[in-house]
Amino acid sequence: MTTVFVVNSGSSSIKWELLDAESGSIYSGGIVERIGEPGGGAANHDEGMHQILAGLGNEHPAVVGHRVVHGGAEFTAATVITDEVERRLDEISVLAPLHNPENLKGIRAARAAFADVPHVAVFDTAFHGTLPPEAFTYAIDADVAREHGIRRYGFHGTSYRYVAGRAAAMLGRDLADLKLIVFHLGNGASVCAIDGGRSIDTSMGMTPLEGLVMGTRSGDIDPGALFHLGRAGMTLPELDQLLNRRSGLLGMTGTGDMRDVQSAADAGDETAKAALAVYYHRLRHYLGAYLVALGGADAIVFTAGVGENSAATRRETVAGLEGFGIALDVHANSRSSTQARVISRNDSAVKVLIIPTNEELQIAREAVAAVSL
């Protein structure tokens, strides 16, 4: 039971992969894009799933693994999907209205298509189920927080679980003995402090909006600024659009693509340089906080699109930290490669690693484990 069909269903796309959970071998994969849009790949998610099934041919998975962004406080491990689980996922969609309803579309379409095999939900939030109360609690009225589920949940957990395991293997250490700080830097970005394989703090909060500067999201901002904008006439939907879609690198420079911002900065664009300074400042802010939270670190790991490919981002994040035992090998950092590798100097007490993430493989492994319980 190792052939897994992994489904990552978004608002207008379904990404998929058919792979072997043991070896990691990929049999096939792809994406149906612009679902429901004029001239798009499919009229709806059911039609998109039927297209994918046609592409699979005679291949039939043993299990289907679904990425689900938010599991709330209830789902802290990969969970076999039943009608009752699907109902609960629908109810907690209020916590992630931009993501969970779209994940559910893929679940429903895939359950209809593969009615004879088990389906498993693998949650972005589950890895952070180990957060201590002092890390997940917001200092607001306790009754209000309890009634509305307001607390830090954290995200990118599937990536963190995979990368932490790979880091331990690369270092030849037992994960239970390691203190790691992992930067998952893509269009969405977060950082996690991992102690012995357990998440003890992370930058994203109740939603994926909190924390680092991202492609289109603001990250940390004084809530009072929102009250100020509200009094100035901005509506709640407008504020939502501002912070989630029109902020971050896009809001500061006009583009949310780090590659474009970096190219502009390299060409002397002062706006791009200023935006990158804000971006790096936030990374270093959290790095310092998590060094303290962990009481030091064995390794700092960079992953995801920006983390894996932006030498400048990695360099600026750890620049000048030799006094903390962090010494980057400038040449190793600047070398282009798709392989996991060490980019710190041999004399660096804290290792600096690049590890390409593989969320699909992690989802497949967790799906198989959940069914095998």
Rank of each mutant, 00 (worst) to 15 (best):
D222I: 07
L243V: 12
T255A: 13
V318Y: 02
Q241W: 13
E210G: 08
N244M: 13
D220Q: 13
V261N: 07
D260A: 15
R314Y: 03
T313A: 13
T235P: 03
A327V: 06
L321F: 04
L291I: 07
I300Q: 02
F324N: 12
G325D: 04
V213H: 00
L321Y: 01
G248M: 09
G295Y: 12
E238M: 10
G251P: 04
S310D: 04
I326H: 09
N309L: 09
M252Y: 13
S310V: 01
L250P: 00
D298H: 15
L209W: 02
S310R: 02
H281I: 04
T235F: 14
L209R: 09
D298I: 06
G248T: 07
T313V: 06
Q262N: 09
L236V: 12
R245N: 14
D240Q: 13
A265F: 07
A312Y: 00
T313L: 01
S263I: 01
S310I: 00
L287F: 09
N309R: 15
R259G: 03
G215M: 07
L226R: 15
P223Q: 13
L328V: 04
L287E: 08
D269E: 11
R282S: 09
G307N: 02
G268M: 12
T317K: 03
L242H: 14
T235C: 14
A304T: 06
P208Q: 07
E308N: 03
D220I: 09
A304V: 05
A275Y: 11
M258A: 10
F227H: 13
H228K: 11
D329N: 11
H331T: 12
D220V: 08
G296C: 07
A232Y: 14
R217K: 08
P237F: 14
H285Q: 15
L321H: 03
V261H: 05
R315C: 03
T235R: 15
D222T: 01
R284V: 04
G233S: 12
A299G: 07
A289H: 11
L328K: 06
L283Y: 04
G230N: 12
T255L: 14
Q241P: 00
G288L: 10
A319Y: 02
L250V: 00
V213Q: 06
F302M: 10
G296Y: 10
G268Q: 11
M214K: 10
S218G: 05
L229A: 14
P223I: 08
A272P: 03
V213T: 06
D266C: 03
R315P: 01
T303N: 08
T313Q: 01
F302R: 00
A327I: 08
G307A: 07
S263E: 15
G224M: 15
A225W: 13
D240G: 05
D329Q: 11
G248N: 09
H285P: 00
R217H: 04
Q241Y: 14
L321D: 02
D329L: 08
G268V: 06
H281A: 14
A274K: 15
R245C: 10
M258K: 06
L276S: 05
T271D: 13
R217F: 05
E316M: 03
G268I: 06
M252N: 09
R284N: 06
A312D: 00
L287K: 11
V301H: 03
T253L: 06
A277G: 10
G211P: 00
I326L: 14
V318P: 00
L242R: 13
G248C: 09
G268N: 10
A274H: 12
R259V: 05
L226M: 15
L239M: 13
M234Q: 06
L276T: 04
R282F: 09
A311R: 01
L239D: 06
